[in-house]
Design a protein around this nucleic acid. Structure first.
Lengths: 237, 237
DNA sequence: TTAGAATGTGAACAGTGTTCACTAATTGAA
DNA sequence: TTCAATTAGTGAACACTGTTCACATTCTAA
């Protein structure tokens, strides 16, 4: 696509960048509230007072525009988790907060997170892209987020907090899957955490923490605190 | 919608049912291969040699048609897992196979499974539907699949295989989330299991088994076998 | 000053889900 | 058997969608 120019800061380039950002800002707003179904090129054009076709001078297609939104979101998510991981605190706390932080950040922008995992490659595409090499994956935004998890697992193993027999990459994949699933389940079924046969369910945040504890224990790290706070189960109700 | 009639088996009703099933069959085929994006009413009509508007005599909307496909798929998924859970085998084997069975069945029909969790309710809708009661959820197809997981957790706790301090419902939610995430990750990134820095990644099935083992350990059940088979890690490569 | 590139536009194309007036066939009752 | 009422099926249309393209305008660099 010929929509991206080298960034010598001529006045024209600056103007162009501004317009492009106004498009992205308008798109971001609509998309955050209503998701892809609410975001049409015509509606977007109306919002920024341009004609629909003008948008195609800045983005090759709607998909390209959406990709930038998702990419930016995932970069924020990754950075957030990485920052948590970089704080100087006991390993268990840090690991726990990385896991819960991932889920919480994902759930904050449900449409973004869900859209970041929305395309299903056909068997042909899969065959064409295989085999996938590690280096190309780890340069992706998703790959970088994954990298943080691998580092945590390796650190935990070095600490003897986690089982050393596990392949750290496999363990990180497993953890990622579990976080991913919780995030999506909470996005698509926001009331699930509240569902409980006799009332007294965990509030969403506590449930995310519980999930993280379970994962850490799966990795081989026993819990010092009890797994479920007193509010859960069929207590006093 | 007035598209469903009582099932007195008059010739007309039989004919109607047949046509409806032919629509569903055609839709099923297209949907399984190409997902929602490939399934248009006009294309569907062409396939079964009817006019597009004819389809609306059988389904109130495209969404309603799709809902039937997803519902049928999830019913199969649920039944499959329930059947595994009902076999007479050692608890650990059964539990393990239920978890892996869920993921494997989901991945077999990627578009179905992903579509079954595709709608994101707006905050208004969430507020309107809250609070959700257990009984109405457990009658859902998803609720029934979830029920199987709760039963497994409770059985494991009764066996002293799982931690008794956990709320079984919370634990089941956590397990569900982890399975859900693995299934979706494998659907949207089919090559992820293969990604490994120095080659020698687990094949997909082995990775699913590894994931299940990790979950069982998280629930409090220690592993008899080593967590990761010999093929993993940076072995002989 | 002027050629060339970049920006923005309106009309159009091909596609979508859906509705509706209409015809044709089928049904159940007189 | 006849006849009214229901049902099945149709084609044209509506209001959308993403996208393209010839065209006019504006800006930029030589």
């Amino acid at each position: 696509m010929d929509t991206d120019y080298p960034p010598e800061a001529t006045p024209a380039r600056r103007r162009r960048k501004k317009v492009k950002e106004s498009i992205l800002a308008a798109a971001e707003k609509v998309f955050a509230e209503e998701g892809e179904s609410g975001l049409s090129i015509r509606r977007l054009a109306e919002k920024i007072d341009y004609s629909p076709s003008a948008i195609y001078k800045y983005f090759g297609s709607k998909e390209e525009l959406l990709d930038e939104l998702k990419e930016a979101f995932f970069a924020r998510l990754m950075e957030k988790v990485a920052r948590i991981s970089d704080t100087a605190r006991p390993f268990r706390e840090r690991a726990h907060d990385c896991l819960t932080g991932y889920v919480k950040t994902a759930v904050e922008r449900p449409h973004h997170y869900a859209a970041a995992f929305s395309t299903i490659p056909s068997p042909d595409e899969v065959a064409a892209r295989a085999p996938v090499c590690w280096d190309s994956f780890i340069d992706t935004r998703k790959g970088q987020a994954f990298r943080v998890l691998v580092d945590i697992v390796e650190e935990g193993q070095a600490n003897r907090a986690f089982d050393k027999a596990m392949c750290p990459v496999a363990a990180a994949k497993s953890v990622w899957a579990s976080l991913h699933g919780l995030a999506l389940l909470m996005i698509h079924m926001p009331l699930l955490p509240e569902v409980q046969p006799h009332g007294g369910a965990l509030p969403p945040d506590a449930f995310v923490a519980f999930h993280a504890d379970l994962l850490l224990r799966g990795l081989g790290m026993p819990c010092d605190a009890p797994l479920t706070p007193a509010t859960n189960g069929q207590a006093d109700e």
